[in-house]
Amino acid sequence: MYGHCLRYSKNTEDAQDILQEGFIKVFEKIHSLKEPSQLEGWMSRVFINLALSYWRKNHSGPTFVDIENTETADDLNVEEDSNLQSYQPEEVLSWINELPDNQRMVLNMFAIDGLSHQEIANFLNTTVSNTKSILSRARKSLRERIKSKNQ
């Protein structure tokens, strides 16, 4: 659970705050869990939702999307992709955390937590095309960072 919190917050203090609040929520709402076997998945969802809310409350600074330069799925064909397996999760996490806020969030939500573009768009109060655009940029930025590390 702490991993979820770390991914959605830029520093460990925020992550710890989310973790604390998350456990309070879990204790308060545990009666609503009908299938004990799904405890882990249910808890993950609680922590992710809380982390997203926390981010929404606390992140600052404008997020502008340049619609004219929006990349499409076709633009994402790259010659070489990076192999993340050779890196430690903490290291990759630090690269993700260096991404702009909106890119980090969308990458986390889509790539790791499996939310759909529609869900992400609803959460960010934006359009699906915008979230796709942000995701493309996030992937591109992450690849560039990995590339620069490799060189």
Binding site: G3, D81, P89, L107, A111, I112
Partner: peptide, 19 residues
């Protein structure tokens, strides 16, 4: 080499990541 690869790698890496 698909862009999804990076997503899959991230998912695989962080699904079990528990600091």
């Amino acid at each position: 080499k698909s862009p999804l690869n990076i997503d899959q790698q991230l998912k695989g890496m962080f699904e079990t990541f528990e600091p």
